[in-house]
Amino acid sequence: MSGTPGQVPTAAPPEGAVAPGGPGSGRAEQIAFVHGPHRRRPLARRRQKLVAGVIVLAALSLLVFKGLTDAMDYYLTANQAVAQRATLGNKDFRIQGTVMDDVRQAGTALDFMIASHGVKVDVVSTGSPSALFKPGIPVVLAGHWQGDIFSSYQIMVQHGSNYVEAPAHHATAAGRPGSANPAGARRGS
């Protein structure tokens, strides 16, 4: 290895020879000491990182595919869903509307109505809503048509970008399930 043109000369010891200073005092330790942690990686490590990069790209592709097919038409408003009921059939989709006043517990399910642009839809949902769920708040429901009723398995409460400080006496009530809707302070987004 030594003497190769253009290479840093290395002194290969004759067979059986021991480096001056004895074993353990040689070049490797010195070089490691000189360099310490180094950013460059051996080939195997670089290959591992390339594999990691490929995995990240694959995950990215999955995200893009899933995202593009699902996210752009995230929900239909209640009036749109009613208008498209025939074409939607039993297919799962998301519907959006504001919860009407009468919310009833029917066994493990919730029975209520949502409205959007003057169109009302009956909903039966087995989903468990967040603490903000109450009449007057906009919701997005995942499920499908079952006749004239929307059968939902997931309730997502939608909140807008308006924020209003609660009066002192209201502080502990706000956010509790079933607490009174504060006088139309919330708008749908």
Binding site: Y163, A166, H170, A174, G175, P182, R186
Partner: peptide
């Protein structure tokens, strides 16, 4: 900061 009328204490994530 007081709670929000709708989000209550959750508004602190804001």
């Amino acid at each position: 900061s007081p709670p929000d009328v709708v989000q209550g204490q959750f508004v602190r994530m804001l």
